[in-house]
Design a protein around this nucleic acid. Structure first.
Length: 286
DNA sequence: AAACCTGTCAACCGCAAACCC
DNA sequence: AGGGTTTGCGGTTGACAGGTT
């Protein structure tokens, strides 16, 4: 037997709410509250609406603390940051934005912010040749990784640095563009994590620092079955986490691809249909 | 001026979790 | 404990407005 419908669809009004209905609902909730039962509310309030519809109308539109109107840049930033970290959990994101509803945030993302995101992806695609770093011994590539499994390519403007804590020379030849590939699933065949140097827990301002710090800011990873180290994850955070939209710093992790991976072509990686190896990126939590 | 296209956003739908008896 | 009910959530739809051809 199927699930009982929440209301008799034949006898409820649907579609846009009239000002009269809004007034009725607002007055009823103002006087009696929701009574903890949205299903019964429309009947009590004298509305020919489904309880779900009443709830939605109240939560998304009639609530007195709802903030209408455009989103501020600060709100943009919060949404982008949270989306990067937790994905499309709109109610959680909305809870960080007083007066905003999950529906608002979702619509705003889908109509505005997602496009900026896509534009960034296009930018990346058009500039793959720029993504190239070098070490003292061999060219390396830099992959920027996110904790929810998507990966980013990134080039960082600025200075040369060395990684004295791990003994791995790291001299960057940086590009001024920051390029992102999210949500491209970036396959590195056979890659597995080898947590040799601890967990990533901090971020550092590389724009004003000549070297990476000497604490547990790196972990190594292995690309072969013998567990030999092929590279290092590094947290090179230099600010907040939405620079792909607004052009400033980011608290992200970077993956230095060691010489054995240096001949990887980014375009072929992107074209690859291989699935991302499990357990590599997910371990990279903030 | 009309047809078509695009962007926006309110509202709906279905599912799963939470709750209640 | 288990089944039914309600709530909350995220994805999707569709009406409408404004812009473009």
């Amino acid at each position: 037997m199927g699930r009982a419908p929440c209301c008799d669809k034949a006898n409820v009004k649907r579609g846009p709410w009239s000002p009269e209905e809004d007034t009725t609902l607002r007055n009823y909730v103002g006087k009696h509250g929701t009574g903890g039962n949205w299903i019964a509310l429309p009947h009590k309030a004298g509305l020919k609406r489904c309880g779900k519809s009443c709830r939605l109308r109240w939560l998304n539109y009639l609530r007195p603390d709802i903030k209408h109107g455009g989103f501020t840049e600060e709100e943009d930033n919060i949404i982008c940051t949270l989306y990067q970290n937790i994905g499309s959990r709109w109610s959680v994101i909305a809870s960080h934005l007083p007066g905003r509803t999950d529906n608002d945030v979702k619509n705003y993302w889908n109509t505005k912010l997602k496009k900026k995101h896509s534009a960034a992806i296009s930018n990346f695609t058009a500039n793959t040749n720029h993504i190239q770093l070098s070490t003292s011994t061999s060219p390396v590539s830099v992959i920027k990784s996110e904790n929810h499994g998507n990966c980013f390519l990134n080039s960082v403007s600025g200075s040369s640095t060395s990684l004295s804590s791990t003994g791995v020379g790291f001299e960057s030849k940086m590009d001024s563009l920051r390029l992102y590939s999210d949500p491209i699933q970036f396959p590195l065949p056979g890659l597995k994590e080898t947590p040799e140097f601890g967990v990533i827990s901090n971020s550092y301002d590389v724009s004003s620092s000549s070297s990476f710090p000497t604490d547990n800011s790196c972990i190594s990873w292995s690309g072969n079955a013998n567990g030999e180290v092929d590279g290092f994850f590094m947290d090179v955070g230099y600010g907040s986490a939405y620079d792909h939209l607004h052009g400033y710093g980011s608290q992200e992790k970077m993956l230095e691809v060691a010489p054995s991976f240096a001949n990887f072509s980014f375009s072929s990686l992107l074209a690859s249909t291989e699935s991302k190896p499990q357990g590599v990126y997910q371990s990279m939590t903030y």
